[in-house]
Amino acid sequence: MLEIKNLSFSAQGRKILDDINLTIPDGKLICLTGPNGGGKTTLAKMIAGVEKPDEGQILLDGLDLVPLDPTERARAGVGYAFQQPVRFKGITVRDMLNMAAGKTLTEEELASVLQEVGLEAGEYVDRGVGTHLSGGEIKRIEIATVLLRRSRLAVFDEPEAGIDLWSFNNLVRVFENIRDRRDNSLVIISHQERILSIADEIVMIQDGKVGLRGDRKSIFPRLLCKNDDCEKPCM
């Protein structure tokens, strides 16, 4: 279980996260949604250790992650897919996936994980994770690295960005399969209705705070509400 307690973070005089409290139970798929600039990506970076909070705790099964660096957090069971994947010169898809898995993967294992994200292993496995891949392709490699980690908690930041419709549908099925196995937790930041619709719980992050939250049946109508008379947190 992930417990976020009283988490706050400011940058350049602006409060980005303001006393966030959130619990993510084991085996659940939680979607974080909300307007751009609301603090979702910052919250994800806090969990992965890419950014450090000013205050608060992030507990994974009781272990406070805040003092841990990104390496220690990864080893403690946190996976994180960057919203904007990083490019490397000379490192191939094979190298990257081997590093993610912590071992040398067989051709079958490479093909399997690449198929999950909609890529043909023969075409991609020896290509560089640099300018040789399009934005959508490198995004799928990024997702594959996190799938391979088999983390207790995997955080995906806008996995749909830059992915074509066929691969997107495939990806939704991958997330559904992980959800249905119920052996680890998923946090997905998304604006996509298809992804939100498979969540066990949807949490709105707005103005650095947790707003509306609940299961998809109760939240969806509010998210899609166009009524100007509604108060926050309708989108």
Partner: peptide
Amino acid sequence: EQILKLRTLGLTEEEAEKAIIDGF
């Protein structure tokens, strides 16, 4: 950010730097 990405895969800072240089 290259170092950070590899650290989120469980590599130490030194291991990440070596992997980046070896690949380069």
